[in-house]
Nucleic acid binder design. Sequence first.
DNA 1: TGGGTTTGGTTGAACTCTCAACCGAACATA
DNA 2: TATGTTCGGTTGAGAGTTCAACCAAACCCA
Lengths: 163, 163
Amino acid sequence: MSDVRWLSTQEQRTWRSFMTAVTKLTEHLDRQLQRDSRMPVAYYEILVALSEAPARAMRMSELAAVCHSSRSRLSHAVARLEKEGWVARRACPSDRRGSIAELTRAGFAALEAAAPGHVTAVREHLFDVLTPEQLSQLDVICRAVDEGLSTECAKVREELGDF
Amino acid sequence: MSDVRWLSTQEQRTWRSFMTAVTKLTEHLDRQLQRDSRMPVAYYEILVALSEAPARAMRMSELAAVCHSSRSRLSHAVARLEKEGWVARRACPSDRRGSIAELTRAGFAALEAAAPGHVTAVREHLFDVLTPEQLSQLDVICRAVDEGLSTECAKVREELGDF
DNA sequence: TGGGTTTGGTTGAACTCTCAACCGAACATA
DNA sequence: TATGTTCGGTTGAGAGTTCAACCAAACCCA
């Protein structure tokens, strides 16, 4: 099918500035957190999710959903966090297949230590460079993109099962 | 320093919707391209950059700059693309340290084959879900973020040398 | 009760990325 | 010409992600 709707010059410019900004920002944040707190952003978000959960514990699958992570990725990640002593896994009493990830004291401390630097970086490179108006625009835009993807992702999830 | 400027509730919401949208979008695009054309988006962009260069060839360091990639990453990536037969490396005549990456016929064909699916995915999940107004807002926003980062990145580049 | 299917989760291999170390060529300076 | 530094690029190890395969528990239904 050659009836592809190619991008206009302007659209290409927008796409490239989007890609550039996103990759630079995520790389910067990842580098900052890795350097200062020895964890990638993805792991930080796992700790955040756990810290906000009741009893600072969550079923693995629920945690995966909250973090928009595949089961597999989360399993590997939690294994690493466990080795670090930041998370502990225990069996789920109500479902013997399940397992529960729990934030340890050390994990909470690590999160507390990491948070200031990370939040500062986010503020500095996103919130501080945009007007309040732009921030609310960005919020609306991201929700629209997310919405458009979640219908699609639901489809994928149906077909492939594992996400 | 406990004088961290934490995020307000609204800011947290914006940040999360941003992260969600970005990670979902990039993962979706990566999965599409990997599934249909056996290459990650980063490699696709390398091929695009080469295809747009005069003689479809470029110095490695220039290519790295255009792709916002580290030298190391590019070196690994080109090695893989070379194994695939999509890119060839040859010595630079004017600087014997240098090497030049060149898009092969097969590489150009692979790019042509990959482009429709990728562009369609981008259009479908970004351009089609936003109004023209929102697209131009997004463009401005991304340029501001990029701007804010490039001063920072310049600093990092100075300190660490290798990016 | 038994057999097939789905669900929750883990595992290992292949791949990509990062970081630091390294090498030879180019350049600067004396 | 000799030497120290910078530049362009590669390499290997370690870490994270993906994908497919797998296992056991739970569920479904005859």
